[in-house]
Amino acid sequence: MSINRREFLKIAGISTIAGIGSVGLFDRLRKNALEASDYSPNLDALTAKRWAMVVDMSKFTTPEDYQKCINACHRTHNVPNFGNPKDEIKWIWTDTYEHTFPGQEHEYMPEDIKHRNFMLLCNHCQNPACVRVCPTKATFKRKDGIVMQDMHRCIGCRFCMAACPFGARSFNYRNPREFIKEEDINKEYPTRMIGVVEKCTFCTERLAVGKMPACVEEAPKGGLVFGDLDEPNSEVRKILSTTYTIRRKPDLGTEPSVFYVVGSSEFSIVPEIQ
């Protein structure tokens, strides 16, 4: 039996592919051989069926009120400061009414509301567009409603940034490490690497040890209220059932979990109807 060169090359090629393939297969099978121990439930953690936040703008009075929340968040999570809007990364920030609720503004609204800054962060939507489009499940919705970002898995395609109607997502255009001051680094939380997307996580790492999100702790009393939307007696539910609140872009159907109390103290007092 003799084979010609062409056939020999074909056989050699196929066996090489088969060889490499089977090595990979064995690798995958071996993975499951890890003598896994057990996980223990975390009794200290704050838990909920669906985490939500009420932002009561009437409680924010000075620029420091906002800045304290932003600083607390950005320091806790090692968010870099690039000093330019192009590369900017932000988890929580502010903008005016017109830009927070586009299309809702009109010329004659109270000056106070028109020029006020609103707190902005990820809405942790119940029906998140970012999760729908992610090709690797790097962004996903947890059982407690938090929309989480797995920086280990993100490939940096930025489809989620195109999909998010709230501009809540930032991309690491540059190495963030160089833009966090040495003395500001929170040694208990990682930084990120270039090429991944990040955003607010409702402080999952703090909830896990029984702490409220960093911004909530720093906000003026009652300014940021955090709680379970599925729990009728929770503080957020109490506010939602007694005060008029709005959400950003509700018509898009993403069902944000962040609610806003817009009225300032001045205007929230309703005159009695005669």
């Binding site: 090709p135 690797t136 490939i155 940096g156 395609c157």
Partner: peptide
């Protein structure tokens, strides 16, 4: 062009390791 646009091109196989059937990008691949 897709590879040039990726933030983490080395991880691109994640599209196949963790296929996400609701992502249009997965189907485009």
């Amino acid at each position: 062009f897709i590879m040039a646009d990726m933030g983490q091109p080395m991880r691109v196989v994640n599209i196949f390791l963790h296929p996400s059937l609701n992502s249009i990008l997965f189907w485009d691949t």
